[in-house]
Design a protein around this nucleic acid. Structure first.
Lengths: 167, 167
DNA sequence: GTCATATACTTGCATATTGCAATTAATTGC
DNA sequence: GCAATTAATTGCAATATGCAAGTATATGAC
């Protein structure tokens, strides 16, 4: 009688698989922050990201925002709607080309952003503090490479992966 | 007349904020893989994660699974349901304590897992190949620290963050 | 000029996903 | 034996998401 089968040594183990590990860290961090801005300001994750973009670059268009925070046009439109509803942003049309929106942050929006960002900075500081100075030195470059490589993987799509998976 | 306001130098910039950068990498990688197992096998992200867990540890209970892949009991139950529906897993009750489920992988489930995992391994290899050997050497330890620190941040909750945000 | 085409964004609606209360089933403590 | 606890599931309401269609503006052909 055979015992419960255990995976072969080179099999993919979720807890050791790099993308899953990145995902877990990102998800754990996002949770408390999301709870905060959700309860305190009634914002969705999309709205928070948009707020962060217009805090940095007020007057951005919807497509610029989508580009900057990886949201599709529908999500951007709804996120802006949520911000406007709560008095955190204003919608206007761009002067040059009136098809474009010009989304600007209000004083209340900036106050909310500052409050959320201050928690965000604590989180980042905690994460960095847990690393050695050598690790802190390489993390930026490493993330830059991972950002580039992941963009390539995404744009190549799963068919490209499958061809190279050799099976 | 004042120009569009630009954020102060120490303000949080989304694109440079560590948690957001981790999230972006994880999200970009997840997308093509998710499309693959969604189209090919009709699996949700939760079901794929559960499949990976039972591939490694067949006969796991729902709570073990939830623990191992960061899903709440509802999501686990639904994910198992999806796997069973597609013939990738079997539900049984544990012999010792019959409140517990014992979820085992089927041959078809293992075949699907192997197919998905082979793409997963290509992704991981690509990511690692984009790094220098020095970076590859530190990444494991670094992730371990980030996993630990993010777990602390999550369990402490947003109130703890706010107290330390000093505002 | 004007008419077809393209672009930017928004809205409505059908569908999926999620969150949570309530339920079932089994076990444990007293 | 029976209240309390635990594991898992189900039903349903709330929410989010995907996408077709709509509005408004701009551009290019002629």
């Amino acid at each position: 009688m055979e015992r419960a089968r255990t995976a072969s040594p080179d099999a993919l183990r979720l807890s050791a698989w790099l993308p899953y590990r990145l995902f877990i860290v990102a998800a754990r961090i996002a949770r408390p922050l999301e709870t905060f801005y959700g309860e305190r300001f009634g914002l969705s994750q999309a709205a928070w990201r948009i707020l962060a973009i217009i805090a940095e670059r007020t007057g951005a268009s919807a497509s610029e925002i989508g580009q900057a925070c990886a949201l599709d046009p529908f999500a951007v439109s709804r996120g802006i709607g949520q911000l406007v509803e709560r008095g955190f942003a204003r919608r206007a049309t761009a002067r040059s080309d009136r098809r474009f929106a010009a989304v600007s942050i209000t004083a209340r929006g900036r106050a909310a952003f500052d409050e959320i960002a201050s928690l965000g900075r604590v989180i980042e500081a905690d994460l960095l503090a847990s690393l050695s100075s050598a690790e802190r030195e390489v993390i930026d470059g490493m993330l830059r490479k991972l950002e580039g490589e992941s963009a390539r993987i995404e744009s190549a799509g799963w068919r490209a992966l499958q061809e190279r998976a050799g099976r």
